[in-house]
Nucleic acid binder design. Sequence first.
DNA 1: AAACAGGCCTAAA
DNA 2: TTTAGGCCTGTT
Length: 299
Amino acid sequence: MLSAVKMAESFIHEDGTPCVKVCGIDDFAVEKVFDCGQCFRFDPVGDSRYAFEFEGVAMGRYVRFAQNDGDNLYIYNSTVEDYEKIWKHYLALDADYSQINRDIAAHFPENSVMPSAMLCGKGIRILRQDPWETVCSFIVSQNNNIPRIKKIIAAMSEKWGKPIKHRQKTYYSFPTAEALYAAGEGEIFALKTGFRAGYIYDAARRCVMGDIDFDEIDRMTFAEAEKKLCEIRGVGPKVASCALLFGFSKTEAFPIDVWIKRVIAKYFPDGLDIDSLGPYAGIAQQYLFYYERYFGGEM
DNA sequence: AAACAGGCCTAAA
DNA sequence: TTTAGGCCTGTT
């Protein structure tokens, strides 16, 4: 079966901002993509005309993504060219999720929890975020809760990120490693990052010194890349696999956090062989995580 | 008020 | 190689 052709057309928002409407979208649910915990820089837009709308900063730009119940995707502050060059890739709309979902289904027993989890999480896509931003963000995430993670990242961006003006309002990009290194550990600690301040600083220092090179990591085998990332203080298996999955598009990465431990204990009492889950294990992980985290396994 | 939050580090078996 | 505490801070 041929997948639907995605057609993008431009229109102008009533405030004069260029926008894009993308038709023929399958397996994309904006509210799941931005609320499944892979990204900390987007928030729901209050007073939206759409069923779901999220705003935030990504790829150095202020942007909004909106959708009505799995239908067309609306991108605010984007041209068709921007969509083709930036957002299609960022949103992973160039990935064939029907094929991916078939592969995942084939790696789990039919009578397992996976069919329900896939139905529940249908429309989740793994974003292709910036490697540095994901490493740093998931360092911040450890032993922490989502509201505070978002608050800390927003504060870091406001303090050391590049200002991005859009219609009288100023937003901020995620700070570079150079900016954080220059700020110093004490200043990072001052933003209530707690014991993570030293970790963030170490990550920044290694990037600035050339000890960590993201392009190089991208070319490594999965095991090598994971090992390299774990050299950073404060980066262990969980943070490394989140960075690999969300920042390096390594879809075989399978982050094991407290929720996934619960999933395994609850639905796979005999254990789950992570290495046998195939090239899209990380996407399967997201389905399981979303199913348990947001619906408590009831759907 | 004690526990917990999308872990990791260190010390000790 | 595996296991127990402790950790900044904020919220319940």
